[in-house]
């Protein structure tokens, strides 16, 4: 398991909760920035703000 850097909700300034990851398969394939050969795509992580509930996404670290 790896510890990732925290994300702060740009609307509320509250630390978000990282609740999901999902592989994105891009047209760039293995040339895509952040391509993970084991997963066959780029891993995205999804955060939710416990204050406003909005979801934020970023490339996984």
């Amino acid at each position: 398991m790896t510890e990732t850097s925290k994300m702060v909700c740009p609307d509320c300034g509250v630390e978000t909760n990282r609740h999901a990851e999902k592989v994105e398969y891009t047209d760039a394939g293995a040339d895509a920035e952040g391509f993970d050969p084991a997963l066959g795509g780029v891993l995205e992580e999804f955060h939710a703000c416990p204050d406003c509930g909005r979801t934020h996404a970023r490339r996984a670290e």
Binding site: T2, N17, A48, C49, P50, T55
Partner: peptide
């Protein structure tokens, strides 16, 4: 979504 963190 808001309170239960993914493992790690």
């Amino acid at each position: 979504r808001e309170h239960v963190a993914l493992e790690g």
